[in-house]
């Protein structure tokens, strides 16, 4: 692991649209524990909502892992969205605003990148996708 864990990680399995709500509420609680300002609580919850919906829409099921992390005294929230779904054939395309294969607005992944401070994506076509995003407390 790259960063020290402040508290136990929270895992939310995602396989229906009510899990999307559960995941973002858990994330908000965790970020509140860490003392994030209310604007950032909404930002983190919104990012989790987009990532969880991607799982339901494209991979059917997966998991959201939420961690409170510490990087030499700097605290933050790490959100990992992981699934073993079909994967993304073209990640560069999927990161473009307005690109969608599902008829959605196509703002999910690029939007999450704008909302959070750090964003990493790895996707193996046919094997699944993992997105890791972090928000640091200012």
């Amino acid at each position: 692991m790259k960063f020290a864990l402040i508290a136990d990680e929270v895992r939310v399995s995602i396989d229906s649209d009510s899990d999307i709500v559960a995941a973002r509420q858990k994330g908000r609680e965790l970020a509140a524990q860490c003392g994030f300002p209310s604007t950032d609580l909404a930002v983190v919850a919104t990012a989790i909502s987009e990532l969880a919906r991607n799982i339901v829409r494209y991979a059917v099921r997966g998991e959201i892992i939420l961690r409170l992390i510490d990087d030499n005294g700097r605290r933050g929230v790490e959100v990992v969205a992981t699934d073993d779904g079909p994967g993304i054939p073209d990640v560069t395309l999927a990161m473009q605003d307005g690109y969608s294969t599902s008829g959605s607005l196509g703002l999910g992944l690029p939007g999450v990148r704008r909302l959070m401070d750090e964003f990493e994506i790895s996707s193996d076509f046919g094997k699944g996708t993992t997105v890791t995003a972090r928000k640091w407390k200012r």
């Binding site: 209310s38 604007t39 609580l41 909404a42 930002v43 919850a45 919104t46 987009e50 605003d97 607005l105 703002l107 690029p110 939007g111 999450v112 704008r114 909302l115």
Partner: peptide, 14 residues
């Protein structure tokens, strides 16, 4: 629409 919700929406591109 709450201020922090508006902030997140705009960041997301909505």
């Amino acid at each position: 629409i709450q201020p922090e919700v508006a902030f997140s929406m705009v960041k997301l591109g909505l």
